[in-house]
Write a protein that binds this DNA or RNA. Structure first.
Lengths: 198, 198
DNA sequence: ACCTGAACACCGTTCAAGT
DNA sequence: ACCTGAACACCGTTCAAGT
């Protein structure tokens, strides 16, 4: 449980600051994908060609660096949900969105744990984005339920538990192994209604 | 990927060694439940009243300490499966076993990740126990499938992915929150057959 | 056989000094 | 406003010396 308003990293205005900020983010993404969310910060700074203090200036906590590194992916997910909301097939829309969600949550080891925590901890940098994503996913779920395609008692919170579980299983097999898309299919088949309404 | 034969901790024969071994194990269990599998080893040694070298003598790797601390729970799980195999209701038997499995996998944060790795990494201390558990669970699954109560295309590997995912979701909410027994119920309802054979 | 604890390595994090 | 890197703290891990 974190407290207070979380720090959200901002791209600096001054040219040298912006250059370093971008270099750190690029190095962080590479390091996270190789070593997971606990990748060495000193190593990230070194690869970005900056001193460790510069990394801390832009990203005062590890969580703020992870947030900045995954912000775009989460924003994409929200945008995708908004486009899919117009789909004529709400179950297909939900499935596609869930696939993308699981893929993003398992971008690197440790991410899905951070996101799961952020979901219910307001003091966390990723909390705002997680909330937006939660809302957009809940809309797709509601539509699929209204069409009688998904069991009506499934809550958005449960949907995210299922997505997180699927992402975690996939994450376990990173980077080499394939990643059990079968898990998500089982979940999907498990939550669709047994006797679709005529 | 670990390599070579893993170290399996053994309870020493000499009285002083046995006393320390037991004290370390008790301290480790407490620490793991409070801080997860990454709990400080120095802290565990201190709480057990031994020097850090003594901890390393008995448990040369963190994985060997985790294995020793969770060995009994896994053995219980195997024994339970053997008793449940005689049950007249194979679906009920499978469900009960899955519940206990998820509960054990989420004894402390980080355990389910270690077990999931151990499942396919022979060089890991928990590999042997994980294999035994896998076999005993597979037997219950096969029985439930033979009775037409569980979808026949579900493999034991997939069953363990589902169990691991459920345990991970539960682990996320440790120690305070309740732990989503709903996840497992959704999974169970998802894998039972839709049109049970007459 | 077993125990101790100093020694080393590595990394996170802060902060005074600088441009 | 931003950068640098020394300094400190903490912890994992090894090993020489001891009983």
């Amino acid at each position: 449980m974190t407290t207070g308003t979380p720090h959200i990293a901002q791209r600096p205005k001054r040219a040298d600051g912006r250059r370093n900020y971008d270099a750190i983010l690029a190095a962080a993404r590479t390091a996270f994908e190789a070593d997971g969310s606990e990748a060495s910060l000193e190593n990230i700074a070194a690869r970005a060609g900056v001193a460790i203090g510069t990394l801390y200036r832009h990203f005062p906590t590890r969580a703020s660096l992870v947030e900045a590194a995954t912000r775009d992916g989460l924003a994409d997910l929200v945008a995708r949900a908004e486009r899919l909301a117009a789909s004529p097939d709400p179950l297909e829309a939900l499935s596609e969105w869930m696939e993308q969600a699981v893929r993003h949550f398992s971008t690197f080891r440790g991410l899905v744990g951070i996101l799961a925590q952020s979901m219910y901890d307001e003091g966390t940098p990723s909390h705002a984005m997680c909330n937006a994503m939660h809302r957009s996913g809940a809309d797709l779920l509601r539509a699929a339920q209204a069409a009688g395609r998904v069991r009506p008692d499934l809550t958005p919170g449960e949907l995210f538990d299922l997505l997180s579980g699927a992402a975690w299983v996939r994450e376990q097999s990173l980077p080499d192994r394939d990643g059990s898309p079968r898990f998500l299919r089982l979940v999907l088949e498990g939550i669709t209604t047994r006797n679709p309404e005529p």
